[in-house]
Simulated scan of single mutants.
Amino acid sequence: MTPAILFLEKQHAVFTLHPYECSAQDDFGAHAASQLHVPLNQVFKTLLTEGEQGAVVALVPSSSKVNLKRLAKAAGVKKLEMMPPAKAERLTGYKVGGISPFAQKKRLITVVDASALQHTEILVSGGKRGLSLGVSADLLQNLLDAVIAEIA
């Protein structure tokens, strides 16, 4: 049981669990998509960025890269850069490859790529490597006060 799952259960949220064997050392999204037999653009990676105004979480399809200028604009900040992995782990309480957008140590501004709206369910990290959660974009928006914008 991860903090992300406990959080969703406490909220009485509708979600699905998708465990898989994780042997990847990088490109965790592509590995999850392959193991779970889902399109790569349906598996969203959780990326941590930072700027002068603080940290921002970006959720983008594993088939894409985040556009930092679009992300900054959507988050209402001046400029963002990718956060070093060790700092992302300290800030969220999760290990890289298992950083969930839910139940992070600190509530951060979260922006979800608009492509999530094309899917009934997207997969995000469940809080550890080898576990994805199936959720709707609406759920992300409601539970995380997430902004939906074109950031990929």
Rank of each mutant, 00 (worst) to 15 (best):
P3M: 05
A4K: 04
I5N: 02
E9D: 11
K10V: 07
K10P: 02
K10Y: 01
Q11C: 14
H12Y: 06
F15A: 06
P19Y: 09
S23D: 11
D27G: 08
G29T: 14
A32K: 01
A32W: 08
S34L: 13
Q35N: 03
L36N: 05
L36S: 06
L36E: 08
H37C: 10
V38F: 12
P39W: 12
P39D: 11
F44E: 01
F44L: 05
K45F: 13
L47P: 02
L48M: 15
T49W: 04
G51W: 09
V56H: 04
V56D: 03
V56C: 05
S63I: 15
V66K: 12
N67I: 07
R70E: 12
A72V: 07
K73G: 06
K73F: 10
V77P: 00
V77K: 01
L80S: 07
M82L: 15
M82D: 03
P85L: 08
A86C: 00
R90V: 00
L91N: 03
I99D: 00
S100V: 01
P101T: 09
Q104L: 02
K105L: 02
K105R: 15
K106T: 00
R107I: 08
V111R: 03
V111D: 06
D113E: 09
D113S: 07
D113M: 08
S115I: 10
S115W: 04
Q118M: 08
Q118R: 11
H119W: 14
H119N: 08
T120V: 11
T120D: 11
E121Q: 14
V124R: 02
S125I: 04
G126M: 12
G126N: 06
G127Y: 00
K128I: 11
K128H: 11
R129S: 13
G130W: 09
L133A: 07
G134N: 11
A137H: 03
L139H: 03
L140P: 13
L140M: 08
N142T: 15
L144N: 12
A146P: 11
V147D: 05
E150R: 14
A152K: 12
